[in-house]
Design a protein around this nucleic acid. Structure first.
Length: 182
DNA sequence: TAGTGTGTTTCTTATATAGGTCGTATCC
DNA sequence: GGATACGACCTATATAAGAAACACACTA
């Protein structure tokens, strides 16, 4: 079972913003400190996902746990800008999901040293002194996989859930083969 | 050598994972 | 004061974005 933990999407509104005045107009939902970072942060609620808006009109949505919710947040964001007269509607913002972070569980503990050898040393990085997880990069996948001794798995870099599920399925079979051989 | 131009790196945000370290709090 | 417990934060991964700070190459 692959579960989405974070979705990152980006778009471009094709208009330039004066972030100083935009943040002043939007009030408490906006946070802008150009000395700290050139982007303006926008959050509709305390636990809501974060929207980072740039001077060029480009923006990033992070912190959603599904693709649909990311699109829903984008819709709310565009509606809010239109309501405040900052953009015209309908806006063609070329919004795209860029990255999905997923977790999964192999439901068995793993010997990461053995797994690094089995999966191929050229495709894996495992330095437990530096980081407790094994990093697996296969040319067969779009994404990068982090494997932990507990059997928990993090899949990151996927453009969609189908791709992450496919990656996890292939990985599960590869690991099963390795463990059966050993 | 100084100035300019280009390219690279770092910063920030979200999120899971887990081991290690560090600081703070509580108890004896 | 010492021991233990707990939380926070660091490490790494992907991804977008813009700006600043660098490093390096080239020309005058």
């Amino acid at each position: 079972m692959v579960k989405i933990e974070n979705v990152v999407g980006s778009g471009s509104l094709g208009v330039e913003f004066d972030l100083e005045s935009v943040s002043a107009d939007l009030g408490s939902i906006a946070e802008y400190d150009p000395d700290k970072y050139p982007g303006m942060y926008l959050r509709f609620d305390e636990d809501a996902p974060l929207i980072t808006v740039y001077r060029t009109g480009k923006y990033i949505i992070t912190g959603e746990d599904s693709k649909d919710e990311a699109y829903s947040t984008r819709k709310k964001f565009l509606h809010h800008l239109a309501e405040n007269g900052m953009i015209s509607t309908p806006a063609d913002d070329r919004f795209q999901i860029q990255n999905i972070v997923c977790t999964a569980d192999l439901e068995r503990s793993l010997n990461l040293n053995a797994l690094a050898i089995g999966l191929g040393l050229e495709k894996t990085e495992y330095e437990p002194e530096q980081f407790p997880g094994l990093i697996y990069r296969s040319p067969d996948f779009d994404s990068v996989i982090l494997l932990f001794a507990s059997g928990r798995v993090v899949i990151t870099g996927s453009p969609d859930l189908d791709s992450a599920e496919q990656t996890f399925s292939i990985l599960s079979h590869e690991i099963a083969d390795i463990l059966n051989i050993n």
